[in-house]
Design a protein around this nucleic acid. Structure first.
Length: 222
DNA sequence: AAGCGGATCGTCT
DNA sequence: GACGATCCGCTTG
């Protein structure tokens, strides 16, 4: 099979309708795989920032020691236990935010971490948010969970709990205009020590905006 | 090219 | 009081 070549018409519409609530009812690993190729859309100050999801990780509500919900229901993890299709945003290492989508029915805490995007719209704004030159490699903008939140201005105070299925939401996940067939690679989750053997990271194979592997520390991209 | 450590704080023990 | 679903800059070889 030929590796997919990703091409975009910059004048075309970036996304279709948001995925419905029922799309998020299933188990996290299925949802994580399903979300690859979908489009994350963020609206700020009347501007649209959007990127194609190229890397995700599944976290289970039960029997997954690596999941935030494992220790039980707390104020911090409340959104995880709520209805599916909502944004769970957490603050990490005193510096960064990360975006998850809650899945499974209300009362179950499974979720999917969005780890990397391929920028589609609002690239100049993303670069400004990241403190980078607009001509930089796309991966510099959104390859990594902390990076994509910075690029799309996703913070916990602003975005935690938002309904990603609402067409009027400032943050939502939409079907792409054209869903491309891409090969999916499955690996262990990044920077996860507990249940480290579980293969719950999903990437679009060969995509330049996928973040680096388990032992990558440096800054070079592509 | 690769490895180390700093930044910086909410959350739970 | 420790540490984490991260990223970046500085050092070394």
């Amino acid at each position: 099979m030929v590796p997919p070549t990703v091409q975009f018409d910059p004048t075309a519409a970036v996304s279709g309708e948001p995925l419905g609530r029922a799309s998020y009812l299933g188990p996290p690993d299925e949802i994580a795989r399903m979300l690859l190729g979908k489009v994350l859309v963020r609206q700020v100050d009347g501007e649209v920032l959007a990127g194609r999801i190229v890397e995700t990780e599944a976290y289970f509500g039960k029997d997954d020691p690596a999941a935030h919900s494992f220790a039980g229901r707390t104020a911090r993890t409340e959104v995880l236990f709520g209805p599916p299709g909502r944004a769970y945003v957490y603050f990490i290492y005193g510096v960064y935010f990360c975006l998850n989508v809650s899945c499974e029915p209300e009362g179950q805490a499974g979720c999917v971490l969005i780890r990397a995007l391929e920028p589609l719209a609002g690239i100049a704004r993303m670069a400004a948010n990241r403190g980078l030159d607009p001509a930089c490699k796309p991966a510099q903008l959104t390859a990594g969970p902390g990076r994509l939140c910075m690029a799309l201005q996703i913070t916990r105070p602003r975005c935690n709990g938002l309904d990603l299925t609402d067409p009027a939401s400032e943050l939502r996940i939409c079907s792409p205009v054209v869903q491309q067939d891409c090969e999916v690679a499955i690996t262990a989750r990044i920077n996860v020590n507990k249940a480290a053997e579980r293969q719950l990271r999903f990437t679009l194979k060969g995509n330049a905006c996928v973040s680096r592997g388990k032992f990558w520390k440096g800054k070079s991209l592509n």
